[in-house]
Amino acid sequence: MMAKVVNSFGLFPLILYQWLGMSLSLNLEDPNVCSHWESYSVTVQESYAHPFDQIYYTSCTDILNWFKCTRHRISYRNAYRRGERTMYRRKSQCCPGFYESKEMCVPHCADKCVHGRCIAPNTCQCEPGWGGPNCSSACDVDHWGPHCSSRCQCKNGALCNPITGACHCAAGFKSWRCEERCGQGTYGNDCQQKCQCQNGATCDHVTGECRCPPGYTGAFCEDLCPPGKHGPQCEERCPCQNGGVCHHVTGECSCPAGWMGTVCGQPCPEGRYGKNCTQECQCHNGGTCDTATGQCHCSPGYNGER
């Protein structure tokens, strides 16, 4: 006769409790929960048919025993014994690389994510502006964003925001990538400063320094070149003679009355006077006129204005 479990209804709640105890602490719908079946032994009390020799008497022809004969047969009766029974239960636990936290299996990073979070076993997701295996390294000047994976697009020495990638322009530049110089009449940080230059001068887009056109000088190009100088940055020497004045831009000589020529080196010819010798002398009877004023110098024997 096969053995059977005694008090099986009393054993089932214990098994169910043990199975639930292994499972209810984790959310089985969590994809990071791994399950497997394991065996374990329980002690049970089981009944079995215990054989024994049963003696009985039957009628027979044995006169010596008063026609009664002894007979034997094997009979069975219920007996009880303790035994071991192998049971199976489902065991749930966090998959390798994960650990249990609040009924969930969360990834484990051996090296703590300094500026980020652990999203997979030993894998950090860095905050914008940080990189490296554990998010402890700040982005260099040429990169930005999570894991510093985006390259900065800034131009002309602009600084790149390590979190957003936005460009912070250096003085003298503007636009999204700082590729444009400040517009006419502006300079400096964010091109907010107004140029103070005069007489058509342009200012440096970074410092605001005035670049004077030829013929002008001064901090704001407000002054003409000093006497004797002309041209770009007032570096050219004037060639004019006899009191001639050169143009502050071109260097062209403006001759005083009585003189003419490119550098005012020629006196007015006879009979001419004044600025550029354009006036005609009005003196008579051999009188000569002053080349500057036109005043007559009479010859002997004559007088009068002319």
Rank of each mutant, 00 (worst) to 15 (best):
R89M: 13
E38L: 13
T207D: 09
Q279F: 05
Q196A: 10
H230F: 15
M2Y: 01
D142P: 02
A201C: 14
G287Y: 04
A257I: 08
R85K: 15
H108R: 13
S39W: 06
R82I: 12
E305D: 09
S35V: 05
F9G: 05
Q196M: 09
S47R: 04
A110N: 05
F173K: 00
V206K: 04
C69G: 07
P226L: 11
N156F: 04
H168P: 02
H230A: 10
F220S: 08
G83W: 01
C113L: 08
S136P: 01
C152L: 13
C225H: 03
T70P: 01
I55F: 10
C34N: 05
R85L: 14
E270F: 11
C268K: 00
H168D: 09
P146D: 05
H143A: 12
C197G: 05
L14G: 04
M260C: 09
R71I: 09
W144I: 01
R237I: 13
P107G: 08
R90I: 11
Y56G: 11
C268G: 02
G21C: 04
I55C: 08
C34H: 05
G287I: 07
V5R: 01
G244E: 03
E29D: 14
Y76T: 00
W176I: 10
S175C: 11
M104N: 05
E100V: 10
H36P: 03
G145M: 03
R181V: 07
Y17H: 12
E84Y: 03
H168M: 10
G287P: 00
S149H: 09
R177G: 05
Y273H: 13
S101Y: 08
L24F: 07
H230K: 12
V141C: 13
P256F: 02
K102V: 13
V245L: 12
G183W: 14
R89F: 05
E103H: 15
H72C: 05
R177L: 11
G131A: 06
I119C: 14
G157S: 15
A120S: 14
S25D: 11
C148Y: 05
C182P: 05
M22R: 10
C60E: 12
R306C: 07
C277S: 01
C124W: 00
Y17P: 01
T61F: 15
C126A: 09
D290N: 15
E305M: 08
E84S: 15
Y40M: 10
G251A: 08
M87Y: 01
E103C: 15
A219G: 15
C95P: 02
W130A: 02
D142H: 12
V245W: 06
W176D: 12
I119Y: 15
E252P: 00
C148W: 00
C298L: 14
G185Q: 07
Q282R: 12
Q93T: 07
G271F: 06
T43F: 06
V33T: 04
M22P: 03
D30E: 10
C221K: 03
P162I: 02
K155R: 12
F220H: 14
Y80F: 12
C212N: 03
N189D: 10
A49P: 01
T262C: 04
E84W: 02
Y99W: 12
A292W: 04
E29T: 13
K68M: 15
C281K: 02
G183D: 13
